[in-house]
Write a protein that binds this DNA or RNA. Structure first.
Length: 860
RNA sequence: GCCGAAGUGGUGGAAUUGGCAUACACGCGAGACUUAAAAUCUCGUGGAGUUUUCUCCUUGUGGGUUCGAGUCCCACCUUCGGCACCA
C-alpha cells in the first residue's frame, strides 16, 4: 500500500498492522507489573502530593461490577493525569474484606470465610489488573488480615479510653435473618440494609461509639469540603439538628386513684419535660403526650386511675416493629393517663396527659406538648380523641399592597390554609396573653427568656443522630478487645496484647449470639486488672469500623508500631479526590468523618475533614432500564467486555456514556463506537499518516492548531472530571487530522509533534494502546513518565471568526470576518449581504446589537 | 409530606457569561468495495411544509423577563435519589 509509511523506531522492524487489544494489553500489563515504580507513591519525593482514592470494594463472590469499573476508571484517569502533571500521586487499592456480605457468601457456599475471601480477593485482583488500573500495589491492604485488624482493635481501645466507646442496654435494631444487631444507619425504613428483611426492636446490652458528641462538628465540617451538594444535605438531614426549648410542665396527680386530693410534684422535682421548636404555640397546648417508653409512666403508675388500660397499651406498643410504628398511613393511637394532669407554665391551666406511640422515646425528651391547631400530628390525634383545639397563630398580615396577581394569589392561598384549621407555619400570635400580636419569632425569644428566668425551661439543641451501635453477633469481623471480670467489670485488653485473634470456629453461622462464644479457649481470659478469671467479649465489630480508618492506613500500610506514622499521615492526608458510590452517604462517609474528628480532638492529626473533594459515580443500570441483578439475568460481566473488545475500549465506553455522576443505562451495541475510535487512533501511526493523496499544499499549521486546541480542551475536561466530553474531543481531533492528512502533505516534524501529543492526551483514558503506540515511535521509556503536554496560546487564536447575523433574533445568515474588524465595518458588511438586504430593505432598523466575535442582531 | 437532582432526536448524550439547539457516538437509510457476508469507506438522518441554496415549528407543560432563553424568573407535571410521626 502506497499510503503506508514506515521507518519510525521499532515500528520499522515490527509492523503491527491491526489494533489487537488482546496482545498489547497483556504485554503492557506485564510491563507495568514488572515496573511497579511507575505508579508507586514516593514517600521521599519532594514533589507535591496528590491522594486519589477509590472506595475500596468488599470482595464479593460475584466479582467486579461495571459500576466498579466506572469509578475506578475515572480515578485512574485522574491519577495518571496528575502523575504526568508532575504530582507525587498516591493511588492505592485494598479490600473491605470483613463483614456480612463476605460472611453470607461463605455461608452460602459452605467455604470458610477466610478461604472464600482470599479467593474473591484473588479474582478481584485479576479483574482489576485486567483493566490496566494504575494502583500502587505495594500498599494493598486487607481489613481481614491480622496486621490490619490489630489496628481496628486499637481504634476501639482508643475510643474507649477517651470515653467514646461505651456499653449500654438499649432498644436496638435486630435483624432476625442476619441474627445480629444493626446501627440505625443500616436500617432502611425498618428493613435490613443487607438482606432486606424486617428489623425488630430488642432490648440488649451493646457497644456504642459516641458519634453524637460530634454532631455539631459533623455538620459544620461540611461547609469546608468540596462535595456534591446532595450528599452534604443528606448528611445534614441525617444528623438532623433542631434548635428548640425544653419546657418543664409541672405534674398534678391524685394522691390515690380514688381520692380527690391532688399532689403537685414540683416539690419532688418531677416534671414532664417536653421538647419543642415551636414555643410560640404554647398557649395552644391542650394536652401532653409521652412516649410509651418514657420512665415517667413507671413513676406515676400508682395514681393512674386506668393503669390496666395504660399497661395494655404499653405492651401492644412494645410488640410493634419499627416499621409498624412509623407507618404513616396508620391511625394514631394512645391512651389517657387518668388522674394525671400537666400544668402549662404560661397559662397555669392543667391539661390531660396521654401515652401514645406517635411520640418517639428516642428523640428530644420523649414527651411533647400537643398543639393540635398548629401541628398536623397533634391535630390528627385530637380529632380522633375529641380533644380541644385552640388557635393561637394566624398567618402574617399582608402589610404591603400586592404588586401583581401572583401576590394576591399567594395571599388567597394563605387564607385557605387557615380555613383548614391546622396552620403549621410561623405567623402572628393571638390568644396568647401578653405575647399576642407578636410574630412567632419574637414570641419564641420572649417566651424563652421568661422560661429561663422562672427556671422552667432552657434553649436546647437536639439531633436525630444516635450513637453508633458497633457490636455484631457475627463471626466474620474484628473481635472487640474487651474482657469482662465479675469483680472488676469491663476491662480493655492491654494494647500489648493486640491483636485479639479471630478464633477458628467450626460453625460460623449466625445463631443469635456470637459464634466466637463457641470456642472456650477464646472466651477464657485473664482479667487485665485483678488477674482473676474472666471472659472475653465475643461480639465482633461492625465492618464499617474497619472502613472508617482505612484511608489512613494507605499512607503507611506496613507499620507495625502505629496505625500509621505521624509523618506519613502528614505527607499524604487528607484525601484530595475521593470517588465512590452515593450509597455511602450516611454510612461510611459519616463514620469516616467521625473517626477523623476523634483523632483530631485527641491530638493525633491536625486536619478535621478526611476527604477534601468527593465525587460519586452514577449507577449503571441494565439495558432494560432496571437495576442489574442476578435474578433478572441482566448483569454485565466486565470480563466478557474485556475479552471481546479489550480493557481500553471498556474504559472509554464507560467514560463516554455520560457525566460521571449521572446514572446511565448500559448499551452493549454502543461499545463498538469506541472500538472504531481506537482503530482510528491506531491508524495514526501507520495507514494514513504522512502520505497525503493530493499533496496539494503544505498544511502543517492547521494540524498544529488542532492539537493545541485539543490539549487545552482535554486538559480542562480532565480537571473538571468531564471525561465524556474529553473523549468526544479526542474523536473529533482524530477525524479532523485524518481528513487533513489524506488531502495534504504534512512535514515529518509536524506529524511527530501531532501524534506524540495526541498519544499523551489519550494515555490516561486508554493506557495500553497509548503505551504501545508510544513504543512503536521508538521510545524506550513508558509514556507515563512523559510530561503532560501544554498548549501554545498563540496557536489556538483564530484569525477569522464566523459572525451570525440575526433579524429579530432569528438566524438569517453568517459571515466570516477577520479578527479585529471594527463594529461599524461588521455592521456594514452584514447589511450588505443579499439575504439580509431582503429583510431590511425599506424598513427602519430600530436597534442593532453586536456581540463581539459572535453575532449581530438587527431589530426591525 | 419534606429535601435534593434531573427532564433535549429513534438511543446515550453535547451546548463558558443568556448568543448558530441537537456536537460526539450508537442506530437507521442509501451508495462504494466484495461471488457473498463481515469489516472498512462515502453521503444522508429532529419534525412539518414546500415554490428545495426556501419557510415554519421544536429542549416536560403553561406563563413571564429580554433584541435574543435549553440556560434567568413564576406556576405546574413527570422521573430518579435521600429522609420520613424528629414535635
Amino acid at each position: 500500500m502506497t499510503l503506508l509509511r514506515q521507518g519510525y523506531g521499532r515500528a520499522s522492524k515490527n509492523i503491527v498492522k491491526n489494533y489487537n487489544p488482546k496482545i498489547i494489553e497483556r504485554k503492557w500489563q506485564q510491563y507495568w507489573a514488572e515496573s511497579p515504580e511507575l505508579f508507586a507513591a514516593d514517600n521521599k519525593s519532594g514533589k507535591e502530593k496528590f491522594y486519589c482514592l477509590d472506595m475500596f470494594p468488599y470482595p464479593s463472590g460475584d466479582g467486579l461490577h461495571v459500576g466498579h469499573v466506572e469509578g475506578y476508571t475515572a480515578s485512574d484517569i485522574y491519577s495518571r493525569y496528575m502523575r504526568m502533571k508532575g504530582y507525587n500521586v498516591l493511588h492505592p487499592m485494598g479490600w473491605d474484606a470483613f463483614g456480612l456480605p463476605a460472611e453470607n457468601y461463605a455461608i452460602k457456599t459452605g467455604v470458610h470465610p477466610d478461604k472464600s475471601t482470599q479467593q474473591n480477593i484473588k479474582n478481584f485482583t485479576r479483574q482489576i489488573k485486567s483493566l490496566g488500573l494504575s494502583y500502587d500495589w505495594s500498599r494493598e491492604i486487607d481489613t481481614s488480615s491480622l496486621d490490619y485488624y490489630k489496628w481496628t482493635q486499637w481504634f476501639f481501645l482508643f475510643l474507649y479510653k477517651n470515653g467514646l466507646a461505651y456499653r449500654k442496654k438499649a432498644k436496638v435494631n435486630w435483624c432476625e435473618s442476619c441474627k445480629t444487631v444493626l446501627a440505625n444507619e443500616q436500617v432502611e425504613n425498618g428493613i435490613c440494609e443487607r438482606c432486606k428483611n424486617e428489623v425488630i426492636q430488642k432490648d440488649m446490652e451493646q457497644w456504642f461509639f459516641r458519634i453524637t458528641d460530634f454532631a455539631e462538628d459533623l455538620i459544620k465540617g461540611l461547609d469546608k469540603v468540596d462535595w456534591p451538594e446532595s450528599t452534604k444535605v443528606a448528611q445534614k438531614n441525617w444528623i438532623g439538628k433542631s434548635v428548640g426549648t425544653v419546657i418543664k410542665f409541672p405534674i398534678l396527680m391524685k394522691a390515690q386513684p380514688s381520692s380527690k386530693r391532688t399532689l403537685d410534684l414540683r416539690q419532688r422535682g418531677e416534671y414532664i419535660k417536653v421538647f419543642t421548636t415551636r414555643l410560640d404555640t404554647i398557649f395552644g397546648c391542650t394536652y401532653c403526650v409521652i412516649a410509651p417508653e418514657n420512665e415517667l409512666i413507671e413513676k406515676l403508675k400508682d395514681s393512674v386511675g386506668n393503669y390496666k388500660e395504660v399497661e395494655k397499651y404499653l405492651i401492644k406498643a412494645k410488640k410493634k416493629t419499627e416499621l409498624q410504628r412509623t407507618d404513616l398511613a396508620k391511625e394514631k393511637t394512645g391512651v389517657e393517663m387518668k388522674g394525671i394532669q400537666a400544668i402549662n407554665p404560661f397559662t397555669d391551666e392543667s391539661v390531660p396527659v396521654y401515652v401514645a406511640d406517635y411520640v418517639l422515646s428516642t428523640y428530644g425528651t420523649g414527651a411533647v406538648m400537643a398543639v393540635p391547631a398548629h401541628d398536623e400530628r397533634d391535630w390528627e390525634f385530637a380529632k380522633k380523641y375529641d380533644l380541644p383545639v385552640k388557635k393561637v397563630i394566624v398567618p402574617p398580615a399582608l402589610v404591603c399592597i400586592p404588586r401583581n396577581l401572583e401576590d394576591i394569589a399567594a395571599g388567597a392561598r394563605a387564607e385557605i390554609r387557615v380555613e383548614s384549621e391546622c396552620y403549621t407555619e410561623d405567623g402572628d400570635l393571638i390568644n396568647s396573653g401578653k405575647y399576642s400580636e407578636m410574630t412567632s419569632e419574637k414570641a419564641r425569644r420572649e417566651m424563652a427568656k421568661w422560661l429561663e428566668k422562672k427556671k422552667l425551661g432552657k434553649k436546647t439543641v437536639t439531633f436525630k443522630l444516635r450513637d453508633w451501635l458497633i457490636s455484631r453477633q457475627r463471626y466474620w469481623g474484628a473481635p472487640i478487645p474487651m474482657i469482662y471480670c465479675e469483680k472488676c467489670g469491663w476491662q480493655p485488653v492491654p494494647e500489648k496484647d493486640l491483636p485479639i485473634l479471630l478464633p477458628k470456629v467450626k460453625d460460623y453461622r449466625p445463631k443469635g449470639t456470637s459464634p466466637l462464644g463457641t470456642n472456650p479457649d477464646f472466651v477464657r481470659a485473664e482479667c487485665p486488672k485483678c488477674k482473676g478469671e474472666a471472659r472475653r467479649e465475643t461480639d465482633t465489630m461492625d465492618t464499617f469500623v474497619c472502613s472508617s480508618w482505612y484511608f489512613f492506613r494507605f499512607a503507611d500500610p506496613k507499620n507495625t508500631k502505629e496505625f500509621a506514622a505521624e509523618d506519613k499521615i502528614k505527607k499524604w492526608l487528607p484525601v484530595d479526590l475521593y470517588i465512590g458510590g452515593a450509597e455511602h452517604t450516611v454510612l461510611h462517609l459519616l463514620y469516616a468523618r467521625f473517626f477523623t474528628k476523634v483523632l483530631r480532638k485527641h491530638g493525633q492529626i491536625d486536619f478535621d475533614e478526611p476527604f477534601s473533594k468527593l465525587r460519586h459515580q452514577g449507577i449503571v443500570v441494565a439495558e432494560d432500564g432496571r437495576k442489574m441483578s442476578k435474578s433478572l439475568e441482566n448483569v454485565i460481566n466486565p470480563d466478557e467486555i474485556v475479552r471481546e473488545y479489550g480493557a481500553d475500549v471498556l474504559r472509554l465506553y464507560e467514560m463516554f456514556m455520560g457525566p460521571l455522576e449521572d446514572s446511565k443505562s448500559w448499551n452493549t451495541k454502543s461499545i463498538v463506537g469506541l472500538k472504531r475510535f481506537l482503530d482510528k487512533a491506531w491508524s495514526l501511526q501507520s495507514r494514513y499518516f504522512g502520505g497525503g493523496i493530493l499533496k496539494a499544499e503544505n498544511n502543517d499549521k492547521q494540524l498544529e492548531v488542532i492539537i493545541n486546541k485539543l490539549i487545552k480542551k482535554v486538559t480542562e475536561d480532565i480537571e473538571d472530571l468531564k471525561f465524556n466530553t474529553a473523549i468526544s474531543e479526542l474523536m473529533i481531533a482524530v477525524n479532523e487530522a485524518r481528513d487533513l492528512v489524506l488531502k495534504y502533505t504534512i512535514s515529518e516534524k509536524t506529524r511527530i509533534y501531532f501524534i506524540e501529543n495526541y498519544f499523551k492526551l489519550l494515555s490516561p483514558f486508554a493506557p495500553h494502546i497509548a503505551e504501545e503506540l508510544w513504543s512503536q515511535l521508538g521510545h524506550k521509556r513508558s509514556i507515563f513518565l512523559e510530561k503532560w503536554p501544554e498548549y501554545d496560546p498563540k496557536l489556538i487564536v483564530e484569525s477569522e471568526k464566523i459572525i451570525i447575523i440575526q433579524i429579530n433574533g432569528k438566524v438569517r445568515d453568517q459571515i466570516k470576518i477577520r479578527v479585529g474588524t471594527s463594529d461599524v465595518e461588521v455592521k456594514k458588511i452584514a447589511e450588505a449581504q443579499d439575504k439580509i438586504r431582503k429583510y431590511i430593505e425599506g424598513k427602519k432598523i430600530k436597534k442593532t446589537i453586536y456581540v463581539k466575535d459572535k453575532l449581530i442582531n438587527f431589530v426591525i
